[in-house]
Nucleic acid binder design. Structure first.
Length: 946
DNA sequence: GCAAGGTC
């Protein structure tokens, strides 16, 4: 059937086959819907008649499968040794349809030729908009007269889809541009750093990863490295953790009515003497008086509707499934029609979703069917409209069951589990919260307050079906205000603080989600990549540790002062992408700025590669294979170095095959002359230049690649690198140098002596933007950034700094950027440290919860004294910072854990746990001072208290 | 042999 009459042919393209099918079914009302094959076996073509704003149309609806195109370097830059990795920041890239997508491209071309309109039904996000423009490019290449329209829809439901078809808009170039920029930046950064660090380190060390070293790729990526950074950072936190002993008073009371355990409302004290003094007061007057009884109803709410990250986190927590495996299983269930689309950010249901129908389907299940029935019974009062998690990707609903199953023949245990999780989660979402009655009792013993609480679950509600969650609690006896009793036990107990645990897979996903690393569809890929690259390992409890290789790489960059392993770079990129999508910045502008900074960062990292070597050397043996590092191979002497005046400069060839003349004093002296990239051979001769100083400067016989130099230059040339050689200088201008400068010669050749002065095309210093000196010799750069890692090495030899990657300003290193600081220092106000006596400057917090709040913190790195200014004023005093300490509940020996020397020095013997038993023991006789052990006095008057 | 993003 053809359009006929005034009917037009409209080519509609969706992002994936499933959406094409849904849209076709909805628009056609399932009437007269025809399906035919396209060139690709996955992407069918649906045909039906439809009227767009009264315009009769023959609709052809097909799909792509995600991106139709890829970005790659032009062929001559694709081989690893084809160019200096630094050139990849400017090497030409192209966007093309890869081989495995050509069948889809052909379908689009064939259909587009016969159509008048092209309507884009891609997902309504930035990537979708970019794919839309890929489709436009392919279709308009064969039919320039196409009218282009964009359908905007937020859910695959009738009203939305019809409304989208009747209100077609124009595609948004800003969104697509943002993705183009992101793709190009990711490619350039990833490829350059990956090639650089792989070629630098792989052959230089014996890396005992479970693969052939030669095949090992030490990849760098703007998502994988911050993910590794999260793991390493927590690992370092655990490694450097110093356990600290604390003291607490516990009290219990057992009567005919039952048992209650009271805990000290001060929590715990790190000062043994203080704890003992208070404890003695309690022991002397052990009578407890009930001061407060509070009863209240507490609700425990069901989770929000399920999105991808939550699905991955919960499957990891409940079943210990890896996020990657979870997504594979979820994809299977989705393909077979049992669950909805598994890659979604959305955690709230549209009002128009028929939630009852989804529950209805589950009524027949032998295990949770009865619960589904209760939900649908209005008399049960169990139903509740689901909560709104606040995220909506406007493309997909939360993950929910779409077809009933009591288990299928081909399902593995994990398919069963995941389907069960999706169903139970959905049923929980539409259920009432659990209801509990909580009782809190406070007692006073000698002026010290203690509290006990109990909980009784009144209605389990959603917990009946969501077996993965529980709500613990026990009952306590009834107390009344004013009631008095003598505790059954009153103990002074010690414990030690413990480090936070290593990151679990769920923790890692939380970090990534919070910092915007990856997308819901790719986060599991980044985690898997770390395992595949031998950067990290996962233990049986799904906890991640870095491998030596992962730790060494992060340590190396950290020692350089670069936070390439932190999420900030991605965050800055994301902000720029947003600016492009909103039209606030142009794509070209963002690309240029970002790549320029990253290139400066790359060059600087390369200058500081000794840091990477040092970090690797901590963990790995040096290899006797060729080390592949141009600074470590010796060469023939060309001249004495005019910069350090100590060492000779020698001719060398780096791994990329490019020639340079570098100072043997590296890394102390970084003087180097890069030679034209077109040199194929260079030999030092005995011929000495008559004019260049300091001499003697021996001339070099160059052979240039004929095709890479202009015709009027000889391919053989006896040249001088001292600065007098016009020909050499011209060829550097024309061809660029082989390394550290782009082919267009825009970056900074690092030259010395008269070459430096005579080379008018020399780029500006990357630090101060002046000409006349090399970047590595910039006078503004001699106070280097310090290591950010608390257990890190010192910052020797770190005398470089570049444009700050965060605020784009000069004058400070990235790690000292005020925009990134967790706190800013104000004025000269300071107080002496309570702990060590050093000054504690007044600072202003910049964290989410305490922004603007003032605090003092000790300036000594080793000392962690910290106090809020307002708590000082209110007299509550200071304490040491301890992040995420968890408290051991068991008693322990005073000397365990190795922490808290200050307290150990004052410790009394055998004081690990002091017990007063009111029913049997004599509370006074046999007692002695807990500080010095003297029975003649109590600790509060002990002369040895210090 | 390199990234991250779609999706099959």
């Amino acid at each position: 059937m053809s359009g006929g009459g005034r009917s037009i042919r409209v080519l509609n393209v969706a992002e994936k086959p499933s959406v094409a099918k849904s849209v076709a079914t909805i628009l056609s009302g399932n009437q007269g819907l025809r399906i035919r094959e396209g060139r690709s076996r996955y992407n069918k073509i649906f045909e039906f008649n439809y009227s767009i704003n009264g315009q009769p149309s023959l609709m052809l609806l097909t799909s792509v499968t995600g991106h139709l195109m890829e970005v790659e370097f032009e062929d001559r830059f694709r081989k690893w040794h084809s160019c200096d990795p630094a050139d990849l920041f400017h090497a030409p890239v192209r966007k093309f349809v890869p081989q495995d997508k050509t069948d889809i491209k052909r379908t689009l071309e064939e259909e587009a030729r016969k159509c008048q309109w092209l309507v884009l039904w891609l997902d309504c996000d930035r990537e979708g908009e970019n794919i839309a423009f890929e489709v436009i490019q392919v279709c308009t290449a064969v039919n320039r007269h196409l009218t282009i329209k964009r359908a905007r829809f937020s859910a695959l439901i009738d009203r939305e889809i019809h409304a989208a078809a009747q209100n077609l808009v124009q595609p948004n170039k800003g969104f697509a541009d943002a993705v183009d920029a992101r793709q190009e930046i990711d490619l350039r950064i990833g490829a350059s750093f990956t090639r650089f660090q792989t070629m630098l380190l792989r052959d230089a060390f014996v890396i005992d990863a479970a693969t052939d070293d030669r095949n090992l790729v030490l990849s760098y990526g703007p998502c994988q490295f911050p993910t590794l950074g999260f793991i390493v950072e927590r690992y370092w936190e655990v490694q450097s953790y110093v356990p600290e002993e604390f003291w607490t008073i516990n009290c219990s009371y057992k009567s005919d009515e039952g048992f209650a355990s009271f805990s000290w409302m001060r929590g715990h004290l790190f000062d043994y003497t203080c704890a003992v003094v208070v404890y003695e007061m309690c022991v002397q007057e052990p009578n407890a008086t009930v001061t407060k009884v509070k009863k209240q109803e507490k609700l425990k709410y069901p989770p929000y509707p399920l999105n991808t990250v939550e699905l991955e986190k919960r499957a990891s927590r409940y079943f210990r499934m890896s996020s990657e495996h979870t997504m594979k299983v979820a994809e299977d269930l989705y393909q077979a029609g049992f669950i909805s689309y598994p890659r979604t950010e959305t955690d709230s249901f549209s009002e128009r979703t028929n939630l009852h129908a989804i529950v209805l389907e589950q009524q027949g299940h032998p295990v949770w069917g009865p619960y589904a029935q209760r939900l649908l019974d209005p008399g049960s009062g169990l139903w509740r409209n689901p909560g709104n998690g606040g995220h909506d990707d406007k493309a997909h609903p939360p993950i929910h069951p779409t077809k009933f199953s009591a288990g299928e023949a081909g399902w593995s245990q994990d398919h069963l589990r995941l389907y069960e999780l999706v169903v139970r989660h959905f049923l929980a979402c539409v259920s009432q919260p659990a209801v509990g009655a909580e009782t809190t009792v406070e007692i006073d013993i000698a002026g010290e307050l203690f509290a006990a609480s109990g909980r009784e679950i009144i209605a389990k509600n959603y917990l009946d079906v969501y077996r993965f969650e529980s709500w613990g609690g026990s009952l306590i006896p009834t107390y009344v205000v004013g009631q008095q009793f003598v505790p059954t036990t009153l103990t002074l107990d010690s414990g030690v603080t413990r480090p936070p645990p290593l990151l679990s897979e769920a923790d890692l996903l939380t970090c990534m989600d919070k910092e915007g690393i990856g997308t819901d569809a790719t986060m599991h890929d980044h985690i898997k990549k770390l395992l595949d690259r031998f950067y990290a390992t996962k233990d049986a409890n799904t906890r991640f540790s870095p491998t030596n290789l992962g730790e060494a790489l992060v340590m190396g960059y950290d020692d350089m002062g670069y936070k390439l392993w932190k999420p900030y770079l991605r965050a800055v990129m994301e902000r720029d992408m947003k600016a492009v999508s909103e039209g606030a910045k142009r794509k070209a502008e963002v690309l240029e700025t970002c790549l320029q900074q990253m290139k400066a960062c790359f060059l600087d990292a390369r200058l500081n590669k000794v840091k990477l070597f040092e970090a690797m050397a901590i963990f790995f043996e040096r290899s006797n294979r060729s080390i592949g590092d141009e600074q470590h191979t010796s060469g023939e002497v060309v001249r004495p170095c005019g910069l350090c005046l100590e060492s000779d400069m020698v001719l060398r060839k780096n791994r990329d095959g490019n020639f340079m003349v570098g100072c043997l004093g590296f890394p102390q002296c970084r003087n180097v002359v890069w030679l034209p990239g077109s040199v194929s051979e260079a030999v030092v001769t005995t011929n000495v230049c008559n004019s260049c100083n300091p001499g003697p400067v021996r001339k070099i016989q160059f052979t240039f690649r004929r095709l890479e130099i202009p015709l009027d230059y000889n391919s053989i040339h006896l040249g001088c690198i001292g600065g007098c050689d016009e020909t050499l200088r011209e060829l550097i201008e024309i061809c660029g140098t082989g390394s550290r400068t782009s082919a267009r010669g825009r970056a900074t050749p690092v030259v010395s002596g008269s070459v430096q002065r005579s080379n008018m095309r020399q780029g500006a210093c990357i630090y101060c933007h002046q000409t006349g000196h090399s970047s590595s010799g910039c006078p503004s750069q001699f106070s280097g950034p310090q290591s950010a890692r608390s257990r890190g090495m010192n910052g020797q030899n770190n005398n470089t700094q570049s444009v700050c990657i965060y605020c784009h300003q000069l004058g400070h290193s990235s790690i000292n950027c005020p925009s990134q600081s967790s706190a800013t220092q104000s004025g000269e106000l300071s107080i002496p440290c309570n702990s060590c006596g050093a000054p504690c400057p007044l600072r202003t917090a910049n964290t989410a919860n305490n922004r603007g709040r003032k605090f003092y913190s000790c300036q000594l790195k080793e000392c962690n004294f910290f106090v809020w200014e307002d708590s000082l004023n209110s007299g509550t005093g200071g304490r040491s910072i301890r992040a995420n300490n968890t408290i051991s509940s068991s008693n322990s020996s005073r000397n365990s854990g190795g922490g808290g020397t200050r307290r150990v020095a004052r410790a009394a013997p055998n004081a690990a746990s002091v017990t007063f038993v009111s029913a049997t023991g004599d509370p006074v006789s046999g007692r002695r001072c807990f500080v010095c052990g003297d029975p003649a006095h109590f600790a509060n008057v002990c002369p040895n208290r210090g």
